[in-house]
């Protein structure tokens, strides 16, 4: 088994209202100096050894992310 991480983020040109709301809350909470927040999704998959990179990319592109509005990155990590 291997652990695979898929990070999904809104594309830079797509409005991210959730990230903006977080960014706007920070000064109210007394945290200064944070100029921007983008909010995305982080998936952790436990993957059998025979699942290849092409399959993982297909999972990310067709299901975990919507490429119209989101970018994605697949990483294999130490479990």
């Amino acid at each position: 088994m291997a652990r695979v991480v898929v990070d999904v983020m809104p594309k830079p040109e797509i409005l991210d209202p959730q990230g903006q709301a977080v960014a706007n809350a920070l000064p109210r909470l007394g945290f200064d100096g944070i100029t921007s927040v983008r909010q995305g999704k982080h998936f952790e998959l436990e993957v059998a050894d025979d699942v290849d990179d092409a399959t993982l990319a297909k999972i990310a592109e067709t299901f975990l992310a919507n490429p119209v509005i989101e970018d994605w990155v697949v990483r294999r990590v130490e479990a």
């Binding site: 209202p17 919507n66 509005i69």
Partner: peptide
Amino acid sequence: LCEAHLLPGALIRNHKL
């Protein structure tokens, strides 16, 4: 229908949340 690619584009969270 957008997710199924029958129509182009996507729908995201309302701009004022």
